[in-house]
Write a protein that binds this DNA or RNA. Structure first.
Lengths: 224, 224
DNA sequence: AGTCAGGTTAAGTTATTGTTAATATTGCGA
DNA sequence: TCGCAATATTAACAATAACTTAACCTGACT
């Protein structure tokens, strides 16, 4: 369920928007000014912020600028609510980092269809870079699957992570230390044959030719 | 060709509107009061209904409310014809489920451009798929129904949501965290066997072959 | 030959998931 | 509002897959 933060200084509008969005099954939070919005946004990490442009003190444009500074909110969609499609505010708004506009008076169906469309857009653009091509292997991080010439290979977690690591920079040699750090982290301690065994299993499954040992240094995913 | 239903108690206006819309190549039906409109709408399934607000007996607002109860007319656009842009009627109208307004006196060019714009918008937002086809399962999110080879399967809420989530991206592995976040949200905390049990129930009902476990990672809805 | 780095195998260990039944919660109709 | 039935969650234990380790092997280089 998507979380939406509404920001407007007029309680009536806030209520009107909330009513319509709750009906569409969104989780709705509200803030009544810019400062409030920034706090709540940081705490709640909403997926979308609907932000009135005209507000006393910190206006929508300024609020948006501040919000866009927060790296955690990078994937948050910001939509402006403007009185009319004034060219001025639109330009300023997009420059401040808004994703879209809705003009007042807000029509419920426009509201919901626009928001739906925005979420859809995000959902689509999200699925782009989840696969690594390396030689004739395709590694799909999302599906946790490796396919080799059409055939799917299922790998256990550690083996998959190992492969992803090595294949993420083909031909680069990863030392054992690097591999430990990346896959086990600094907390876990494992014996010194563990990686070798995983490498063995991996080679068995994807074929012996991909992973090369550089003695005294480490392993690499070789791609000619 | 789009079908438009005109509703107004004044024959002159009706005739005026029809003339202008027929010219634009729409298929035009008319009704002279709210009751009539509801009947014709159900029978004819128009793509758009142009509805006068001021009508004796059942007024436009009320008619609209009734129309919006009819699920088949969900995708029908409802446009109000109002004497002037009174704030009151606008709000009431939008709450009743209208999509837009046209104010009287109606200018033919405004009429046709507005209607064109509305159809264009619907054409875009219409692609929201309310049904997922996955293997030989058809999942209808609207009807909360799953059918497998013609037979309907009724699923409890949680199981249904789980299925929808997994089937929304077939073959993608969802981690337990993702599943928790999607179905329970960040607020609720449930024990660590809860998902498993729901998975069990689901598999019992839809068949064992669809949902695959990727140990250490999560679950996926597999579709070959 | 001795040492060092890594390879291999199988057996042990642990972590994760499956399963069932019991318990809690919810929603709904009388 | 009560009580029932349907759902949802938890608990306890079983099953299984993944991971790690130990013991031994191989080959290269000195």
């Amino acid at each position: 369920m998507e979380k939406i933060l509404l920001v407007d200084d007029e309680p009536d509008i806030l209520e009107f928007l909330r009513y319509n969005l709750v009906k569409e099954n969104y989780q709705v939070l509200t803030a009544k000014n810019g400062r409030d919005a920034i706090n709540k946004a940081q705490k709640e990490m909403p997926h979308l912020i609907l932000l009135d442009v005209m507000m006393p003190e910190l206006d929508g444009i300024e609020t948006c600028r501040v919000l866009r500074q927060i790296p955690e909110l990078d994937n948050t969609i910001i939509v402006f609510l403007t009185a009319r499609s004034e060219d001025y505010s639109q330009i300023a708004g997009f420059e401040a980092g808004a994703d879209d506009y809705i003009t007042k008076p807000v029509k419920p169906r426009v509201l919901s269809s626009k928001i739906k469309a925005l979420f859809r857009r995000v959902a689509v653009s999200d699925e782009i870079p989840n696969t690594i091509q390396a030689g004739n292997l395709i590694i799909d991080k999302e599906k946790y699957l490796v396919s080799k010439e059409g055939a799917d290979i299922v790998l256990p977690k550690k083996e998959f992570e190992l492969l992803v690591l090595l294949a993420s920079k083909p031909n680069r040699v990863f030392t054992r230390e690097e591999i430990y750090a990346a896959i086990w982290g600094n907390q876990v301690i494992v014996g010194d044959r563990t990686i070798d065994v995983h490498i063995r299993k991996l080679r068995e499954k994807i074929g012996e030719s991909y992973i090369k040992t550089t003695k005294g240094v480490g392993y690499k995913f070789e791609i000619k």
